[in-house]
Design a protein around this nucleic acid. Structure first.
Lengths: 355, 355
DNA sequence: CTTGGCGCTGTTACCGATAACAGCTACAAT
DNA sequence: ATTGTAGCTGTTATCGGTAACAGCGCCAAG
C-alpha cells in the first residue's frame, strides 16, 4: 500500500491539511513545518494519489491528443511538439489514433473528455460535421483543433492554409510545363477539400481546364494512395503529373507506379504535401509542400494551456495559420533547389516526359 | 456541470447504489429497475467520473507505454499493436517518449505509475541498472518489458534474440565476401550490447578477427547515426561494410555517406536492424533484419492484461522471443530476394568494392 | 405461526485528496 | 488590560463513485 497524506500526518502528529499545504507549496504554512513535512514525505517516499487529487480539484493534468494516424510521421512530429510544451507545464498526453476512421472519432473523444482537462484534435470528420463538438464545447470542454479545421466551430485552430498548399503544389507542376495534371484527392476532411480547391484555382489561374476525370479520390493513408494508383493504372490513362493530397498518399502512389515499371520523376511527376520525415531519403526524393509541424504542435499546446487556465483568447490569437512553402526535390523532375517560396518559384527546366 | 449518479438517483427516487449497480451490470438488481435506470441515464447523458471511479476501485483502466523514440516508426508500430489489444479490453494508453535519454526514464515511469494500472516499457537504461524497477515491482507495480530487456528483473519480457540479430546481419555481410566489417554500435542498452555480441560471434565463427577500431559507438537515433558516420568519415578509413545497430542509425549513416558522394550498396555495404517502415522505399532500399513489431506489441499487451488481472504467469510464458529474419534489399549490394532466413542465406555474388 | 433464505434495495463508511472555514497563539496597538 | 490581527494549524464537508453490510418483503419449509 502506498503512503498517503494521512500516514505522513500521523507520523508527524499534525493534520492532513498541514501536510497537503506543505506538499502543494501553499503559503499558509511556516517554513520550518514545511521543511519537516517535506523531509518525512521524502523519507517515506510519498507519491500523491492523482485520482484523489483529480477528484477533489477537478483537474487531471492530462491532455488528450487525437490524431488520424500515428504511423504518419507528420503526426508523430506534431505529437512530440505538443509534448514539448505540455510536459514542462505539468501535463501528460493521452494519445489516441483514429486511423483516419471517422466513425471511431466521436467515441474516442468522448472517452478522452472524461479523463482529461482538454483536447487537441486533428479531426477526421467532414468540416461541417460539427454537431458533437459544438455540444461538448457548450458543456465546457476545452478543445483546440490542429492541422484539420472545422467550419463555424468556435474554438482555436492551428493549421496551414490548405488552399494555398494545393495551389503551390499544382502551380509547381504547371511551371514545369505540365498540362495534364491529375490529383489524388483525399477524403471528406477540410484539408482534402481545401487542397482540391487550391488545385482547381491553380488550374483556372493558368488557363487550364479542370477535368473531373483526372481527380481520383483516395483517402489520406499510404495504403489508400497505393490502392488508388493501382486502380488508376488498371483503368489506364494516367496523367503526366499528379498532385497527391499528402505525402503518404504520394508515397503509396509512387510505390504502385514503380511496381509497374514507371519511373517517377521522369515519366510521371508526383508532388505531395506535408514534408514527411524520410521524404528526402526516398528512392525518388519527394517534392512536397511544407510547413512547420513543430510550430503547429507547440502553438496548439500553448493555446490549449491558455484556454485551460481560463483565459479567453482574443479572436485573432485563436486562429493560427502556418505559411506553406515549396520543397523541390526529384519526384517532379525539376532540379532540386534548396528552398523556393512559391512566389519566387522559377520556371524550372522540364525534364519529365509525357506518358 | 456533468450529471452524476446522485442526479439520476434523485430523478428516479432510488439510492445512488441502485444506480451504480445498474450502470455496472451488477447482478443484484431487478431487470426492470436496471432498465429504468439505464433509460434515464441515457436520457440525461450520464458519463461516469473516471477519477472518482479510479479512486474508489483503485483501477484507472489506463496503461502506460514508455518508448525510446516516437519518431522511430518501429515504436509507433509497437504502440499501435499494444493499442489494438488494450483498447478492446477497455484500456487506454498513456504514451510517453524518452527520446533515448536514460536520465528522463525513471522520472517518467514514476509519474506514469501513479496514474496507470500497468506499464509496458522499452527501457533505455543499461540492462543491469534494475534497481528502480526492482523496487517498483516490489511495491506491486505491474510491468512488462518490450523490445529491450533487463538482466535479472523478474518481469515478463517480449523481445527478439538480439545476439541472433547481430549474428544474422554480420553473417550476411560475411557471406557477401566482405572481410573488413565495421559496426555502428548503439548505447548501453541490452539491444546494443547483444547485437554487438552477435557481431563479434559472427566474426569469430568465420575466422575473422574482431577489431575494436572498426566499432564506433553512435546511439540509436537517426541523428546520432548521421553524426557518428560523419565523424568516422572525417577520421577516414571507413570499412567496406557496416552493420548498424538499428535502421535509424543505418539511415543516418547512409545520409552521411551520400553527402560525401559515397554510393551505398556499391562502395559501402550497410545493413540495419528492425525493418523500419519506408525502409524499402529509400533511395537505396535498406537491407535489414526483421521481426514482427505487431506480434511484439500484442504479446506484451496480452501479458500485461493477464498480470493486471492478477494471474501469475507461468515462467515460460513470461519470456517471449520473436524470431529474427534477414530481409535482403539493396544497401549491401546483394541481389534482393524475397526473404532469406539466415540458415539458408546463399553466398551472394559480391558487388561492392573496397573504399 | 415461526423460521430461514432469497432477492432486491438502502445505509454507512471509505477511497485520498482539497476547499472553506473555524480556532488558536503571540504580539502589537489602543 | 483589552482588543485586533497576522500567521499558522486543525476541523468538517465534499468531490463521485464503490464495498460491505443492514434491512425489508415475500415465499417455502418446518
Amino acid at each position: 500500500m502506498p503512503v498517503t497524506l494521512s500516514d505522513i500526518a500521523r507520523e508527524l502528529g499534525v493534520s492532513k491539511m498541514t501536510v497537503s499545504r506543505a506538499i502543494n507549496n501553499n503559503a499558509l504554512i511556516s517554513p520550518e513545518t514545511r521543511q519537516r513535512v517535506l523531509e518525512v514525505a521524502r523519507r517515506m517516499n510519498y507519491q500523491p494519489n492523482q485520482h484523489a487529487r483529480a477528484l477533489a480539484t477537478n483537474r487531471s493534468y492530462l491532455i488528450g491528443v487525437v490524431v488520424p494516424d500515428l504511423m504518419n510521421l507528420y503526426f508523430a512530429e506534431v505529437a512530440r511538439a505538443i509534448e514539448s510544451i505540455a510536459r514542462p507545464a505539468g501535463f501528460q498526453l493521452l494519445i489516441c489514433s483514429t486511423d483516419e476512421d471517422a466513425t471511431r472519432e466521436i467515441g474516442e473523444v468522448e472517452v478522452l473528455l472524461q479523463r482529461t482537462d482538454g483536447l487537441i484534435i486533428s479531426s477526421v470528420l467532414a468540416p461541417t460535421d460539427t454537431g458533437a463538438y459544438r455540444k461538448m464545447m457548450r458543456d465546457g470542454a476545452k478543445i483546440v483543433l490542429v492541422d484539420r479545421t472545422m467550419r463555424n466551430l468556435h474554438c482555436p485552430v492551428v493549421a496551414t492554409d490548405n488552399v494555398q498548399v494545393g495551389r503551390i503544389a499544382t502551380e509547381h507542376l504547371i511551371s514545369l510545363g505540365h498540362v495534364r495534371i491529375g490529383h489524388l484527392s483525399g477524403d471528406a476532411s477540410s484539408v482534402s477539400a481545401d487542397r482540391l480547391e487550391g488545385y482547381k484555382r491553380a488550374l483556372e489561374g493558368h488557363g487550364l481546364r479542370f477535368n473531373k476525370a483526372l481527380v481520383r479520390p483516395c483517402g489520406l493513408l499510404e495504403s489508400e494512395g497505393y490502392l488508388a494508383m493501382r486502380a488508376w493504372l488498371a483503368k489506364g490513362d494516367i496523367p503526366e503529373a499528379i498532385f497527391a493530397v499528402n505525402d503518404p498518399a504520394a508515397i503509396g502512389g509512387m510505390k504502385a507506379l514503380e511496381e509497374v515499371g514507371i519511373k517517377v520523376g521522369e515519366e510521371v511527376a508526383i508532388i505531395g504535401a506535408g514534408n514527411i520525415h524520410y521524404g528526402d531519403m526516398l528512392r525518388v526524393p519527394l517534392t512536397t509542400v511544407s510547413w512547420s509541424r513543430a510550430e503547429m504542435g507547440q502553438q496548439a499546446a500553448r493555446l490549449l494551456l491558455r484556454a485551460m487556465a481560463g483565459e479567453s483568447l482574443p479572436s485573432k490569437a485563436r486562429n493560427v495559420s502556418l505559411p506553406p512553402e515549396l520543397i523541390v526535390r526529384n519526384s517532379c523532375g525539376a532540379k532540386p533547389l534548396a528552398r523556393a517560396r512559391v512566389g519566387g518559384a522559377a520556371r524550372f527546366v522540364r525534364r519529365s516526359s509525357q506518358v
